[in-house]
Design a protein around this nucleic acid. Structure first.
Length: 541
RNA sequence: GGCCCGUUCGUCUAGCGGCCUAGGACACCGCCCUCUCAAGGCGGAGGCACGGGUUCGAACCCCGUACGGGCUACCA
């Protein structure tokens, strides 16, 4: 059985308001069983995990803030699903909250999406033939859809005041059991309703949950069969007193008119699903396939929020996390390829992504693992990219002029391997302190290091011998340097550890540094010897 | 309160009735490598929430309980 959703089968023609462009129905509604028209049979939803011929998914962020980690993961799953199936990834801006939505936020979200490499096929800035892609520009569609429901008897006006409703809820809750709207206004005769509306009495419009509908069941692509008893369904509000649609209504109208086939979203929407299904059915729209992914929690088991630290994608970017690492980490938080793969690139994600491997339980945000993964990607980064990201940090720290990127490119490139495996985030704090000694005439001497190393007996002797041997080197590169310094312990009787550490402290100022021999090479013979000489007075004999 | 979802090492997960004396990764501990720090190699500790069923056999199926989460707005 297929769903006839050509415009002629719709109960109320949409074309009456010359809104055709905005409300064209899905062109080829080849949805599988989940898309049966109302009224469905309880058994009418099997096998909905099947993928439709033409996958269309959407990510619909609300520009009331930046793109956060949880939203990004939802976007990634939608994007990967679309790419995997060769479908379309639609970006829609749910900006109906006019108070809190801002254009800056929208821009920030688009920027973060691009940074993560999540390109959209339809949406802001790229357009598409199911637009507009901002909810605030789609209000006529909701109005028309509401007219449809008024006409086919699936919506009714409600004149109850907020106070009445509050009181109702109060008593319902103390009694226990159902706490939704008591349907008082559902029984008002339509003639009376018309009069009251005509008289200007404030009212909202509610959906009329059918009495004869069985329990609502979906085959969630992630959670499997989920059923809600019909008598727990609320006649929720479709349109507010001011005529604007509620989220629950607007989102269904949009998803329907945009031909969305699979709704992949956070499971905070799972409980909203049956409500939305009543709208799809009232609209005689095909019901898409749902996939509810679990949320990301903080370490305390609560939904991730600002309290847990940085939650915005761009904050992680600014803290030196690479987009490849964040994408990989986020994709893996709640999804897996197999029993061992943890590192994968974008192409692999697309090739392997499958909703059936999305886990049902919530994942806890683990910054430690993200950092580890970021380190892996840093080590894997192209040398020139590393250089290009490092130079501005050096410039900002006052250690180098921008021109260094050109005239000392090879020298900088040589520095990268020494640094990359010691860096977990691409930020100045991680990089500048480790290389500072290379960019100053003489390093600042760390008192603790001087005390623990140079003050030891034999340090001075080792330094003298090291200086002598290095002085004699014709080829001042890491190999010969190592050969030379290896002779120091034998020649002086100073223990190898101390000898090397003495040189390290003399040259870098501290006990911890990048590899010694390579560092000396980067410093050059003159600079290295000058440092040893300058530090010599600090050393014990 | 009602409805819904979830529960495998500290964390992310593999497992979809016998391949499991439960595998991998992060973190942790130890050893190795080693000029420090890293990186890397090797090894270790650590888990099926609990209780009943079903079955020859259960981490896997069913039912309870506990705990966590979501929804229950003229928010999204």
């Amino acid at each position: 059985m297929t769903v006839g959703l050509s415009s002629r089968s719709r109960p109320v023609p949409f074309g009456i308001h010359s809104l055709h462009m905005h409300i064209c129905a899905p062109r080829s509604p080849t949805l599988r069983p989940n898309a049966l028209p109302y009224p469905p049979h309880p058994e009418a939803y099997p096998g909905s995990l099947l993928v439709t011929d033409n996958v269309r998914v959407r990510f619909a962020p609300s520009p009331t803030g930046h793109l956060h980690i949880g939203g990004a993961r939802t976007a990634i799953y939608n994007w990967a699903f679309a790419r995997h199936h060769g479908g379309s990834f639609v970006l829609r801006i749910d900006d109906t909250d006019k108070e809190r939505s801002t254009d800056e936020n929208t821009q920030a979200i688009l920027r973060a999406m691009r940074w993560l490499g999540l390109d959209w096929d339809e949406g802001p800035e790229v357009g598409g033939d199911r637009g507009p892609y901002y909810q605030t520009q789609r209000s006529e569609n909701y109005a028309v859809a509401l007219e449809t429901l008024k006409a086919n008897g699936h919506a009714y006006p409600c004149f109850c005041t907020a106070e009445q409703l509050e009181a109702q809820r109060e008593t319902a809750r103390t009694v226990g059991g159902f706490s939704g709207y008591d349907r008082t206004c559902r029984h008002i005769q339509s003639a009376e309703a018309q009069e009251r509306i005509a008289a200007g009495e404030p009212h909202v419009w509610r959906v009329k949950v059918p009495d004869d509908r069985g329990d609502i069941t979906i085959e969630d692509a992630i959670r499997g069969t989920v059923t809600w008893p019909i008598d727990a369904m609320d006649d929720f509000i479709l349109a507010r007193t001011d005529g604007t649609p509620t989220y629950m209504f607007a989102t269904v109208v949009d998803d329907w008119q945009m031909g969305i086939t699979h709704i992949i979203r956070g499971d905070d929407h799972l409980s909203n699903t049956p409500r939305q299904i009543t709208v799809y059915e009232a609209l005689e729209a095909p019901v898409p396939i749902f996939a509810h992914m679990s949320l990301i929690f903080g370490p305390d088991g609560k939904r991730l929020s600002k309290r847990h630290g940085a939650t915005s994608v761009e904050a992680y970017r600014d803290e030196g996390i690479l987009s490849e690492a964040l994408l990989n980490y986020l994709a893996l938080l709640g999804w897996s390829i197999d029993d061992k793969t943890t590192l994968f690139d974008r192409e692999t994600l697309i090739r392997e992504f499958d909703l059936s491997r999305v886990s049902k339980n919530p994942g806890i945000w683990d910054p430690e693992k993200l950092e580890w993964m970021n380190g892996v990607y840093i080590r894997d980064m192209a040398v020139d990219e590393f250089v290009d990201r490092m130079v501005p940090m050096l410039v900002n720290a006052g250690l180098a002029a921008p021109e260094i990127a050109e005239h000392s490119r090879d020298w900088l490139r040589a520095l990268v391997p020494l640094l990359a495996e010691r860096v977990r985030r691409m930020i100045p704090d991680e990089i500048v302190p480790k290389v500072r000694f290379l960019f100053v005439e003489f390093p600042e001497m760390d008192p603790a290091s001087v005390d623990k190393v140079l003050a030891k007996e034999g340090a001075g002797t080792a330094l003298d011998e090291a200086a002598r041997l290095l002085e004699a080197l014709a080829d001042f590169s890491a190999g010969p340097i190592e050969e030379a310094l290896r002779q120091v312990p034998e020649a002086t009787g100073v223990k190898a550890k101390l000898a090397f550490q003495a040189v390290r402290v003399a040259v870098t100022g501290t006990m911890v540094s990048p590899p010694l021999f390579e560092s000396l090479e980067l410093l050059g013979k003159v600079g290295a010897l000058a440092r040893i000489e300058k530090a010599r007075p600090l050393a014990a004999e």
